[in-house]
Each structure stands twice: as structure tokens, then as C-alpha cells.
């Protein structure tokens, strides 16, 4: 009897020690989140204040909605929003379906070795940064001495050099095509995974029934991708005000003084007014507007996802 109680005591003690260890392990992360995620969230009040550096966040004057009224009246805002939304929508139109097509075609390839090589090669652009990509574009397309300009000159097609970045009407397409190039392989991973989850027997049965390759793609592969496609689509749509993946870097590196009217988007505009011009309160207001709209879009997409797909878009539930 006594030994049982003793063992119980030891177990209690060890479970207390374990609890303390676990709490320590978790609290490191929790403390980090409090400092680097939750403390800046408080900084959102800046949007309702007139921030003066020497007064600090707390000491600065409350100005109510003045910053948002300014935002509403900002003459650059229609241009910035038009660019952001147009680029986002064009990306949804082109960058979003491209990996799906790529994944389907790749999965139809009958040469496993070659398939691996293609996959590896197609991931490569994802790993290089936009800094490098935009420099590469200089040497390939835009510079006076670039590949295309010298090639066209040698072939006698065009003598004067052409810089696509100095043509503001082309900027959206530069964004969309370079983004497609960079992410087509990487974004296809999720669809390839969905395809590899399809039961091979279905295909074999279809083959026996005399279905052609195209029929198999249309009636077996694509219907099985609907779930993954819908989810990726909704995430893309929720990011309407971000200009799509890589948009900030694109706008920042590929934008210049000549294409400015087409290249400035919400995130680069925030940077410009916030950091470069030092209008912290106004920039925070723009940022807040951005996150509120994005949040609403995400919630709307999530509601749609729950209704039509029967699953939630974002992570919730038992973790």
C-alpha cells in the first residue's frame, strides 16, 4: 500500500516536472508571438492617430478617421487600386490555370525519368528571388545590349533597342508572364499530388472501354482535381488586394519612373508613403484597409468553400 502511494508520488512529481518542461517549451514560442505578432497589432491604433516620432505611439494625438478620409480623397488611390486589382485578376486568369494544365500534361508523360528531370527544372525558377529574376530580365529582354535586342539587330529585324519595361501598357503582362514562368512548376505540386491520388484502376477500366487519352483527361483527371482547384482559386481570390504572389517584388524591381502609373500597387504605395515619405499614420491606415478587405474576402471565400465544397479553407479545429 505504501509503495503504491510512493510510486504515485513519484509519478506526480515527474508529471509536474514534465508539465514545467512542456510549459517552458511552449512559452518560448508564445512569448515570441506576443512580442513580434501581438505587440505590432496594437500598433494598428496608429491609423487613428497623427503619429509624431518624438511623441511615440501612446503620446501622439488621436485624430479619429482623418487618415481614412485622406485615403478616400487620395488622388493616387484609384490608380493604385486599379493596378493592384487588374494584376490580381489577370494572374487569376493566367497564372492560376497554367500549373493545372502543366500538372495534367506532366502526369500524362510516359517517361518516368524524363518526368523527374522536367519537374526538377520547373521548380528551379521558384527558388531564385525576384531580385535575380528582374536582373535576368535586364540581360534577356530590356537592356540595350540584351539577348533579344542584339539578336534582333543582328537579324536586321529592328535596329533601335526596345525596353519592354519602358512601355507602360505592357507592364501588367510582364508581371503576369514572369509570374507564370516563375511559379508554374512549384504551383503544380499540389495538383500533381491530387492526380497521383486518383485510383489507377479507373484509368485502366476506361482504357479497356476504349477511352482516348483526351477523354481520360476530361472525364477522369479534371473532375478529380475540382477540390484542389477550388481551394487554390479561392486563396488567389482572397489575395485580390495583394496583386498576387510576388507582386510586391515585381512592382518594386520592374517598376520604374516611366511605367510608374501602371506599376505602383497597394503594397509598394504603402512602402512609398510610409517609409520613404515618413507618413507612418497614413501608411498604417492604408495597410489596415488592405487587411480588412482581405479578411472580408477570405471569410467570404471560406463561406463559399464550406457551402460548395463542404470544407473550411483555413486551418481550424483540433490542433
Amino acid at each position: 500500500m505504501r509503495s503504491v502511494r510512493r510510486r504515485q508520488r513519484i509519478r506526480n512529481k515527474s508529471s509536474r516536472v514534465d508539465q514545467a518542461i512542456l510549459q517552458c517549451m511552449a512559452l518560448v514560442g508564445v512569448a515570441y508571438m506576443l512580442l513580434f505578432y501581438y505587440a505590432p497589432m496594437y500598433g494598428v491604433v496608429l491609423a487613428f492617430k497623427d503619429y509624431k516620432f518624438f511623441k511615440g505611439i501612446l503620446g501622439s494625438k488621436w485624430v479619429g478617421l482623418a487618415n481614412f478620409i485622406e485615403l478616400y480623397q487620395d488622388i493616387s488611390m484609384p490608380m493604385v487600386l486599379r493596378n493592384t486589382i487588374c494584376i490580381s485578376l489577370l494572374k487569376i486568369l493566367i497564372c492560376f490555370p497554367a500549373p493545372i494544365i502543366f500538372a495534367v500534361l506532366l502526369s500524362e508523360l510516359q517517361l518516368p525519368r524524363y518526368k523527374r528531370i522536367i519537374q526538377t527544372a520547373s521548380y528551379f525558377p521558384h527558388f531564385i528571388s525576384w531580385v535575380i529574376v528582374s536582373l535576368m530580365m535586364t540581360y534577356l529582354f530590356t537592356d540595350d545590349r540584351s539577348l533579344t535586342n542584339t539578336l534582333f539587330r543582328q537579324l536586321g529585324w529592328r535596329q533601335e533597342s526596345y525596353n519592354v519595361l519602358n512601355n507602360e501598357n505592357a507592364f501588367y503582362w510582364v508581371c503576369v508572364l514572369s509570374e507564370t514562368w516563375k511559379e508554374i512548376g512549384w504551383n503544380s505540386i499540389i495538383f500533381l499530388a491530387a492526380i497521383s491520388g486518383i485510383d489507377r484502376q479507373i484509368y485502366e477500366a476506361a482504357t479497356v472501354d476504349g477511352a482516348s487519352r483526351l477523354q481520360k483527361i476530361l472525364y477522369i483527371t479534371l473532375p478529380n482535381l475540382v477540390g484542389a482547384v477550388a481551394i487554390v482559386f479561392m486563396f488567389n481570390f482572397a489575395g485580390l488586394l495583394s496583386g498576387g504572389g510576388g507582386a510586391f517584388d515585381q512592382s518594386y524591381f520592374l517598376g520604374n519612373s516611366i511605367n510608374y502609373e501602371r506599376s505602383i500597387i497597394l503594397s509598394t504605395y504603402t512602402l512609398e508613403v510610409g517609409i520613404s515619405l515618413g507618413r507612418f499614420s497614413y501608411a498604417t491606415a492604408v495597410g489596415l484597409m488592405n487587411s480588412v478587405v482581405s479578411m472580408v474576402l477570405l471569410l467570404a471565400c471560406n463561406a463559399a468553400s464550406k457551402k460548395f465544397l463542404g470544407r473550411s479553407l483555413y486551418i481550424e479545429g483540433d490542433y
Partner: peptide, 14 residues
């Protein structure tokens, strides 16, 4: 933390 953030300026000040 995955869905909300204070944004660039508050982080900069922090």
C-alpha cells in the same frame, strides 16, 4: 497570427 498582422509600420517601430 496566421491571419492578422499589425503591418509594416508598427513592426518597424517595434
Amino acid at each position: 497570427t496566421m491571419y492578422f498582422s499589425g503591418g509594416l509600420i508598427p513592426l518597424y517601430l517595434l
